[in-house]
């Protein structure tokens, strides 16, 4: 084996993402085939896949921002849940969707601050710190939620002019509600920040070798705080997606493990925004097919077995990649200043 890093960049890129390319081509062919057979259902399933992937990619972006700065965030689930609830409450009180989204994002950022405080300042084991957030979120939302609260509307799809009229692509990509658009924009934004700005370089340095970064005058604690808080805000957006865009109301523990699936998405995407987006779309597609099977009413499988699919897929992905994917070197280790 020759060293991949000395080979041409595109070759390196292809080697690294070989499985993804092959998988992508297979999925593409299947989509084309099913579109020819039944265009309406295919379009509906694909559009649903994009929307179902939204909370996953937002959660994954939250996770990878933290982990690139070496803070493991197992509390994404709780951040999403509490943000979803706060967004819902603001919508109930004010009726203003924009304010509600802002409130949810703020709540997510606040929980990011809490996680950063626990893992960076207090140096609590990060897995336990995240679990604290998850349990607090379940408790607080359960205590303050009263049955019978009703929202005042939810975010509606905004067709992007002529783009929305293109067959398949138009309906799938350019006729979505705002948070779904925002998620796609964030994928590219986070990618740009992480790999093409000074801030991103510093973030990655703090995640790979904090001692070296510290020696060069980078404030390790500050970088970790900021990235975890930004991640929390993004997870918050994923939370309000559920209450203000997808469902339009709140239910107890409505996140249903999406925060954890998002972590698998992040690992599948090898801690990169673009890779995670691909993984999230794959998970979204599974969920969409699952919903289609459940309510299309053509197959006779107990709904519980169909309901298990995303969770099974998560385990398969982790088992297939867990050993080979490489997290940032300092991931999960608190930094002690000398």
């Amino acid at each position: 084996m020759y060293d991949l890093r000395t080979a041409a960049p595109w070759k390196y890129f292809f080697r690294r993402w070989k499985g993804v390319f092959i998988g992508g081509i297979i999925i593409f062919l299947v989509i084309i085939f099913s579109y020819i057979k039944n265009s309406a259902v295919t379009e509906a399933v694909l559009a649903s896949a994009v929307r179902q992937s939204t909370p996953l990619i937002l959660g994954a972006l939250c996770g990878l921002l933290g982990e690139r700065a070496a803070v493991i965030n197992i509390g994404i689930e709780g951040q999403m849940l509490l943000a979803a609830f706060v967004g819902f409450l603001f919508n109930v009180w004010t009726g203003n969707l924009f304010l509600a989204v802002l409130a949810g994002v703020g709540m997510g950022a606040l929980l990011g601050l809490l996680l950063a405080f626990m893992s960076v300042t207090l140096k609590i084991d990060q897995i336990i710190g995240g679990t604290v957030i998850n349990i607090i979120a379940i408790g607080l939302t359960g205590y303050f939620y009263k049955v019978g609260m009703t929202t005042k509307g939810k975010l509606q799809p905004i067709p992007l002019g002529p783009l929305a009229k293109i067959p398949i692509i138009g309906t799938v990509l350019f006729n979505n509600p705002p948070i779904t658009y925002a998620a796609i924009v964030l994928v590219f934004l986070v990618h740009y920040i992480l790999f093409h700005t000074r801030w991103g370089l510093r973030t990655r340095a703090v995640g790979e070798h904090p001692r070296a970064a510290d020696t060069l005058g980078i404030n390790v604690y500050f970088m970790r705080y900021m990235n975890v808080i930004a991640g929390g805000a993004i997870a918050g957006l994923g939370g309000v997606f559920l209450t203000l865009e997808a469902v339009g109301s709140f239910e107890r523990v409505m996140t249903n493990g999406r925060g954890f699936v998002a972590l698998a998405v992040m690992i599948f995407g090898k801690w990169t925004p673009l890779g995670s987006w691909g993984a999230a779309l794959l998970f979204g597609l599974t969920s969409a097919i699952q919903t289609q099977l459940q309510f299309g009413g053509k197959v006779n499988i107990p709904h519980q077995f169909i309901g298990m699919l995303p969770y099974l897929l998560t385990i398969v992905v982790l088992a297939g990649l867990g050993g080979r994917a490489r997290p940032p070197a300092a991931d999960g280790i608190p930094y002690e200043k000398e």
Binding site: I74, F260, M308, Y311, L312, I315, L318, A319, G323
Partner: peptide, 18 residues
Amino acid sequence: TGAHEVITTIMLNYIAIN
């Protein structure tokens, strides 16, 4: 496989419920 138990056990919880 090296799959981290925190995520696999949570996923297995959902599978067990189903």
